[in-house]
Amino acid sequence: MARQSGTGTSATRRLGILVILMLAGLALCGLWFSAEDVVQGSTVRIMYIHVPSIWTAYIAFGLTAVCSAVYLSGKNRSLAWDRFAGAAGEIGVLFVAVSLVTGSMWGRLTWGTYWVWDARLTSTAFLFITYVGYLAVRQLGGTHRQRARRSSVLALLAILEIPLVHFSVTLWRSLHQEASVANPNAKVALDGLMLFSLFLGLVAFTLLFVWLVLHRQRAMMLEDAFSDRGLDLAITARRNEAGA
């Protein structure tokens, strides 16, 4: 048997090193080289992780939906699609959490308050809770196929529901608040290096996401294989019991 350590391959290891280098570069550019914003001062630097993390979360939830749809529509219903959906969902929840936390830190520094009932904030919070629910359903137990079917239907429901929630929250705010709190990007006049840092952040976080999904997906595959192995042992035990 080939020696297998962890869930990595040489490709993911290279990807991992690339991600580390890019994140280090992002830290240098974001915290050191790039200039302070004229209006916001140093608080603008939060943007370099805030924007990439919500970007990544959208990619993640999109991937969850696509994989769920492929799982449900596929003829052979490969569980690999379900595992990709689940891995992306977990990491998406993580990145939404990061963007909510960094966002409220930025809000505290800029607006003097952690939370405002801005449409974008509110619907992001709903996004977070919706996928926490999705993860809870994945944990319900049963066989792998039961888990896959339930959670993929739920993921597709979530994709339907999110635009509706976003739309209604936007409608709700627009009616009650004349000057909506502007999104951070609009206020900031981005110079070249700031733009580069932001772009670097987007690429680095996307690659980080890919790296995390690959590993998490393999870990899930091992978990499934482990419980299948447990099932094999249990079947053998039952047969022996019957024979005895």
Partner: peptide, 14 residues
């Protein structure tokens, strides 16, 4: 036929 309840093999090859 193998059928499973949760992770328990209720039927282990019938």
């Amino acid at each position: 036929v193998v059928a499973v309840l949760g992770q328990f093999p209720a039927l282990a090859g019938v």
